[in-house]
Amino acid sequence: MIDLSHIDDLARRLSSLVPPGLRGESSRELRDELQQNFKSVLQTGLGKLDLVTREEFEVQRAVLLRTREKLDELQRAVATLEAQLGAAPAAHPPSSAPHH
């Protein structure tokens, strides 16, 4: 979920960009309406994006790090086993003739 306070802040910033001629007391309602419109457009636009929360991102990052550590561990184990197999004498060399 997107933090609505950030959207409110951005909408306020956008409404502050209204030309100075529209900033008088009589146009306060216009600024408020513009701010609400900005907020609505921002929420709609951001809602269409495929975004994840920071928490979801951090969870997936932790899973990826654990997976990477496990992969490194498995690669070391395979390398060790390959080294042991390469150093061990072959008791029964593989036969190329099919067995019936």
Score class of each variant (00 low, 15 high):
29 E>C: 03
94 P>F: 01
51 L>G: 02
87 A>V: 08
96 S>G: 10
74 L>G: 00
43 Q>R: 03
9 D>S: 14
9 D>G: 13
46 L>Y: 00
57 F>P: 05
79 A>M: 08
30 L>I: 06
76 R>W: 11
70 K>M: 13
45 G>N: 09
69 E>P: 05
68 R>I: 15
67 T>V: 11
17 L>R: 10
19 P>M: 14
16 S>N: 13
89 P>I: 14
35 Q>G: 01
52 V>M: 07
70 K>R: 12
15 S>Q: 08
37 N>H: 09
24 G>S: 15
36 Q>S: 09
22 L>A: 09
61 R>T: 07
19 P>E: 13
29 E>Q: 10
51 L>R: 00
36 Q>T: 05
48 K>D: 12
53 T>L: 03
87 A>E: 12
39 K>S: 06
5 S>G: 04
7 I>F: 01
97 A>H: 05
34 L>N: 02
89 P>Q: 12
6 H>A: 12
6 H>G: 13
93 P>T: 09
34 L>C: 06
20 P>S: 12
64 L>W: 14
73 E>H: 06
74 L>V: 03
51 L>H: 01
89 P>Y: 03
45 G>L: 10
47 G>W: 00
57 F>Q: 07
41 V>P: 00
64 L>V: 13
61 R>K: 10
66 R>A: 15
43 Q>M: 13
4 L>Q: 10
7 I>K: 00
91 A>K: 07
42 L>Y: 00
62 A>V: 10
83 A>D: 11
58 E>G: 01
88 A>H: 03
68 R>S: 12
65 L>T: 12
67 T>D: 12
58 E>M: 10
56 E>L: 09
5 S>P: 06
25 E>H: 03
98 P>R: 07
96 S>H: 07
32 D>M: 12
96 S>R: 07
25 E>G: 08
46 L>C: 01
36 Q>M: 05
58 E>I: 06
73 E>C: 09
26 S>N: 08
92 H>T: 14
41 V>Q: 04
61 R>A: 10
32 D>R: 07
79 A>P: 06
89 P>C: 06
21 G>E: 12
73 E>R: 03
10 L>E: 07
50 D>W: 01
82 E>T: 06
2 I>T: 09
94 P>M: 10
44 T>R: 07
68 R>A: 12
42 L>P: 03
79 A>H: 02
24 G>K: 05
98 P>W: 03
58 E>A: 05
86 G>M: 10
4 L>P: 11
17 L>C: 09
76 R>M: 13
